[in-house]
């Protein structure tokens, strides 16, 4: 296992891991100084691949950057790895609430119990969406990204799913910190938005021989996300395909799951009007319509 995860350093250094793999690898990095060193040196090597691509940006960019920074607060320096309220132990403890390894927390108490040091309020002022990082807690990072959409009262119980990995990596080197920070706040992470949406609901399906598929759907965002955990191999020449089901039970392809194992995939199509989602095994490349019995159907609440 360790050998295998060690092999991910290269893919991590070129940002070629998906959300789940990234989170898992970042957790590994907190324990493995060999990988940390390797990631840093490989990251430096990787950026060389961008030499020769120079292109002058439009002049307007300069103006928008320079006016933009005047309204952006700089983060405090990271003088000690463990920061103010988070200790190294706290940070490592955050691993436990990552449902990639402990699938599907079912209710809020579970979530709360797994991150006991999380302060109820953001650690800093409401304008600092990175307030979380010196605190190094899962929920405070989510707090920041939620804030950018809207302040909502309800907390999504699986909000730590992806952020956990980002939080766990706080104590480590510059490059990895950069990765985790720039990744977690990205408003463009569609899957994270769905997972953290206040109205997100989820349906879990466990496969008989291990692994599970969870569909998280936010009606307000009109999107659904598959979180596959240890998905068994679909077989040679086959792939998992996702579907949205209309009210009259017609299936529309919502995309292909790029592999087995741990996967986070945003379903294509409008999950607000759909009545449910499904997953089937199809020939590689996908099918226009399901050609096999669905492995699981995930009805959406109205």
């Amino acid at each position: 296992m360790t050998d295998e995860i060690h092999e991910l350093s290269g893919a991590y250094a070129v940002d070629a891991l998906d959300d789940v793999e990234r989170a898992r690898f970042e957790r590994h990095l907190t324990d493995c100084s060999t990988c940390r060193d390797e990631v840093e040196s490989l990251s430096v090597a990787a950026v060389e691949l961008s030499s020769g691509l120079e292109m002058a940006p439009p002049a307007s960019l300069r103006a928008s950057v320079l006016s933009g920074i005047t309204s952006v607060r700089q983060l405090p320096p990271l003088t000690e790895p463990a920061g103010r309220t988070g200790t190294a132990t706290d940070t490592l403890g955050a691993r436990d609430c990552d449902i990639v390894d402990s699938p599907a927390p079912t209710d809020r108490p579970t979530d709360a119990a797994s991150s006991p040091v999380v302060p109820a309020a953001p650690l800093a002022g409401p304008t600092d969406d990175h307030a979380a990082e010196t605190g190094g807690t899962v929920s405070s990072i989510s707090e920041g990204s939620r804030r950018s959409r809207a302040r909502q009262g309800t907390r999504s119980p699986w909000r730590g799913l992806i952020a956990a990995g980002a939080a766990a990596v706080l104590a480590i080197g510059t490059f990895t910190i950069v990765r985790s920070l720039t990744g977690e706040k990205a408003p463009q992470s569609a899957s994270q938005q769905v997972l953290e949406a206040p109205d997100a609901t989820k349906t879990v399906h466990s496969f008989a021989n291990g692994g599970s598929a969870t569909i998280v759907r936010s009606a307000s965002l009109g999107k659904a996300v598959l979180v596959g955990t240890d998905l068994p191999s679909p077989g040679a020449g086959k792939t998992y395909q996702l579907w949205l089901q209309s009210k009259d039970s017609a299936f529309t392809s919502a995309g292909i799951v790029p592999g087995a194992g741990n996967q986070v995939v945003v379903l294509g199509g409008d999950a607000a009007t759909a009545a449910g989602a499904g997953i089937t095994i199809e020939p590689t490349g996908g099918s226009k319509q399901p050609t096999t019995e669905p492995l699981a159907l995930f009805p959406f609440s109205a």
Binding site: V44, V47, I69, V72, R73, Q74, P76, G173, T174
Partner: peptide, 21 residues
Amino acid sequence: FIDIWRHCTRFDADKGSALAW
């Protein structure tokens, strides 16, 4: 660039060049 501005307090010259960062 906004992110670089925000995070530049975290840059550590011992870990690699500014440009690589």
